[in-house]
């Protein structure tokens, strides 16, 4: 799949933003006044910045409001609803903490639930696609949610939670990579089923339908990242998991915490780039690209 920067940026940053909102909604850390204001500004910058970034890959962003209509069937529509509900609830809850010094627990709790649901619905947009066997697994939502919560715990300053969640995220990501490498072969879809010609012998793509490129090849047959994928996986794990955990084990200082956050985000961006770049869409079979 073509790794669109807008979608990589969106899934990583809105994930971290909603992860932080999840902790804030549960009163972790229990902050009020200007300290709470600072936490909420960071969370909203990440969450809303990511959502705005996601509209850059739309052909017609001016019609984006129509995406709220099909929540009965579409995960993308559900994601829009969950994000708006979470942001409104957490806005109310945050206003209570910042301006009135009030902890409205129920609103905060519901805000946390919808923050997690937002990340879950985002992940389901990818998980639902049978056409991309690497994504079509329950590990995809587990990966998205563990990344979101570990980033959130880091930003919320919850050292212990952050280390535990980062370890879980790393474990899920490694299994997802290993399982994903055999996902297309294990899906049962190959050139023989794609063309129905398998009964007559072995099928090979002889001539493509066009000499130039097209939307399908640009969007679905992206192969640039494959060559260095093993190296990138190691770099990514090192940055999003190993280095932050080592830094968190050191005596706490704000500078070290900032380094841990920066390293985690860089590693998460690399992992998300691989998530898209390594994903094989079955339409590539028709072009003999798999």
């Amino acid at each position: 799949m073509h790794p669109a920067p807008s979608v990589i940026f969106f899934t990583v940053f809105s994930g971290i933003g909603f992860g932080l909102l999840f902790f804030l909604g549960l009163g972790i850390p229990a902050v009020t006044g200007w300290t709470a204001f600072a936490f909420f500004v960071i969370a909203y910058l990440c969450a809303v910045g990511g959502l705005i970034s996601s509209t850059f890959h739309l052909g017609h962003p001016e019609r984006a409001l129509k995406a709220f209509t099909q929540w009965r069937s579409s995960w993308l529509s559900r994601e829009g609803w969950c994000a708006v509900i979470a942001l409104i609830l957490m806005g109310l809850y945050g206003a209570g903490l910042v301006f009135f010094g009030q902890h409205w627990g129920l609103i905060g709790f519901l805000g946390s639930v919808f923050s997690v649901l937002t990340v879950f619905t985002t992940s389901m947009i990818y998980t639902q696609l049978k056409t991309i066997p690497r994504w079509n697994t329950p590990l995809t939502p587990a990966m998205f949610m563990s990344f979101s919560l570990s980033g959130g715990a880091l930003l919320a300053g919850q050292t212990t939670w952050a280390m535990v969640l980062i370890a879980i995220a790393a474990a899920i990501q490694i299994v997802l990579w290993m399982q994903g490498d055999g996902a297309l072969a294990g899906s049962g879809t190959d050139l023989a089923t794609a063309t129905g010609l398998g009964t007559g012998g072995s099928v090979r793509a002889f001539e493509p339908p066009h000499t130039g490129t097209n939307y399908l090849l640009k969007e679905f047959a992206y192969t640039v990242g494959r060559k260095h994928s093993q190296k990138l996986r190691i770099i990514s794990i090192g940055l999003f998991a190993v280095l932050p955990v080592v830094l968190l084990l050191l005596p706490f200082s704000h500078f070290i915490a900032l380094l841990a956050v920066a390293s985690h985000v860089a590693g998460a961006l690399a992992a998300r780039w691989l998530f898209f770049a390594e994903a094989e869409h079955v339409v590539g079979l028709y072009y003999g690209k798999r």
């Binding site: 739309l58 696609l129 049978k130 939307y215 969007e219 079955v282």
Partner: peptide, 26 residues
């Protein structure tokens, strides 16, 4: 007139039957 050009339907199609128009963005 309702298409926002998100491309998700083309992702969901295993046959490559849908193409986003590069000029019209639908």
């Amino acid at each position: 007139t309702d298409c926002i050009g998100c491309g998700l339907c083309a992702w969901a199609c295993p046959y490559g039957a849908r193409e986003m128009d590069a000029v019209e963005k639908v």
